[in-house]
Design a protein around this nucleic acid. Structure first.
Lengths: 213, 213
DNA sequence: CTCTTTGGATACTTAAACTATCCACTATGG
DNA sequence: CCATAGTGGATAGTTTAAGTATCCAAAGAG
């Protein structure tokens, strides 16, 4: 197909597709003449993936490009390292520079120990967690160990579902892309489901009619 | 205190504080002269809240202003309606307009029924969920009912922790702000904890050493 | 054979979130 | 008491991200 059909089938304006081509988010089509190129289904799939990660996952274009480059790289995707790969490239959870103090980091370490987590205590996710804990503290809203443990237990359950879902994917080409999609879109999915579950739990506890949530 | 001290104590540049004043995210200080004003601890607290919601929660300035206006409004915050209030003002989970089809909406309805959720099936959160499901589908990555049920069960647990934490807050002034903080920062907290739990679960299943996650 | 579309390069636009400048003051330290 | 730095507020400028728009010669379609 040519760019017009690609545009129509993906719902993306032609100038935007050209922009993605310039930015390297979408590979060039197969040239068939000085001003003609041919795009295949893989281009359509990639374009939909880009829109999913940016529109719903909320990733910036630059980050999306890096993730896709990694997905395209022919490194052997060992299952155990998949999520590490995905995480390497995901943007940090916070904007400002490191503002967590020693106590915040200690709370992360203690949490990992309580949960028996086999994680790298110096890794970016650990630092991100310390940062979020510091933010709660500075905003004057306590996040005590009970709450932290409760959320940690919850996310252990989510991670088991994640690994189950990704484990069901077959095909070495698709598995890395799946890990990225389920991780990135998963964040949005969690947020949305959490709103619904909050509305339900709130209604349940008060014994009232459902809210507008 | 004056603006300089407010800047120093919050780590926010003076021009940025002036910008927040202009934008109505921070109330004006108490005027004591033609070019002098006095700020109190409540201004410092509000400023830290703004930075928490924008830097860590990732909210745009305009949304933050709306949320804060709602937090400031003297409407009686009935516990049952708190989260509804928070949700009313939170930004939609997706960027593009509604692209979910009837089947996506039907899956949301069926999920609610399976889980016995007391929710508004026409509300924004329900529509957002349909949108996310549609995105998975279009990106070519199945999100089957098993996975959806698994994540829903997980978020039910998260919502119980949410309500427990918010229920522990006392003081009618603080409770609405708490609901907002725990909901907004909670999204980021969930995402970060999920990365850690994924790394742990991945290491546990493969029986290998912890990854860089 | 005319009229639209294409691929590609370059230039322009829009929005968000700050930053900088200016000005008439006010506070302050020597 | 006076130089100097800081202040509140208005207005203007900057930066970055994510597109749009324009232009061109060369296909393609009816």
């Amino acid at each position: 197909m040519r760019i017009g059909e690609l545009s129509e089938r993906s719902g993306t304006p032609v100038p935007t597709i050209k922009y993605y081509l310039r930015e390297g988010l979408l590979p060039r089509g197969e040239r068939t003449g000085p001003n003609q190129a041919h795009y295949g289904d893989e281009h359509l799939h990639r374009l939909r993936l880009v829109r999913a990660l940016t529109d719903v996952g909320g990733l910036p274009i630059a980050t999306t490009r890096e993730i896709l480059a990694r997905v395209d790289s022919p490194e052997p995707p060992i299952t155990h390292e998949l999520l590490g790969h995905a995480m390497h490239v995901l943007p940090p959870a916070t904007k400002g520079g490191s503002t967590a103090d020693a106590e915040d980091h200690e709370r992360v370490r203690a949490l990992s120990e309580r949960r028996g987590w086999q994680i790298h205590p110096e890794g970016r996710p650990s630092a991100d967690l310390a940062e979020v804990i510091a933010t709660y503290r500075r905003a004057g809203h306590l996040l005590d160990d009970d709450a932290l443990d409760g959320y940690a237990a919850t996310m252990e359950q989510a991670a088991r579902v994640d690994l189950d879902v990704i484990g069901r994917v077959t095909g070495t080409d698709e598995i890395l892309e799946s890990a990225v999609v389920y991780t990135v879109l998963g964040d949005t999915l969690m947020a949305v489901l959490r709103r619904l579950a909050q509305a339900n739990e709130s209604a349940r506890r008060s014994g009232a009619a459902p809210q507008d949530g």
